[in-house]
Design a protein around this nucleic acid. Structure first.
Length: 110
DNA sequence: GCAATGACGCTCT
DNA sequence: CAGAGCGCCATTG
């Protein structure tokens, strides 16, 4: 988490990573949800931004973060997208027909 | 420093 | 249900 923080401005990044790290296995959280828990409600964009800056191999379970529609928010054909889906399914998260997750069932509640 | 950009989300057509 | 519009703001070029 710290290595990632190098050079970043606000404490927000750390908060974000911390919150994400709290998401339990087999559960997912939306960007907006993370934003709220991280103390920057209404600024979901920043969550995505923070993640985009997150290097691969980080200890942060970024794959458990999805958009409010229950789907992946990266380019569908990108490697990252496939990896994310694979990781989630490996944890038991089920993707529906339209590549969306049933938030009512898998959304993490804190 | 200014303008464009983006792993978002909610409301209104 | 698909689109468009609008808010939000750190990071980039």
């Amino acid at each position: 988490v710290d290595e990632v923080m190098a050079g970043k401005s606000t404490v927000t990044y750390e908060r974000i990573y911390l919150v994400i790290s709290d998401i339990p296995r087999g559960r997912v959280a939306t960007y907006g949800q993370i934003a709220e828990l991280a103390g920057i409600a209404g600024q979901a964009r920043r969550i995505g931004y923070a993640l985009s800056a997150l290097p691969q191999g980080s200890v942060v379970p970024w794959h458990r973060v999805i958009n409010a529609s229950g789907g992946i928010s990266v380019r569908p054909r990108s490697k990252a997208a496939k990896l994310q889906r694979r990781l989630l399914e490996a944890e038991g998260v089920v993707f529906g027909k339209d590549a969306r997750i049933n938030l009512a069932r898998f959304r993490w509640r804190s």
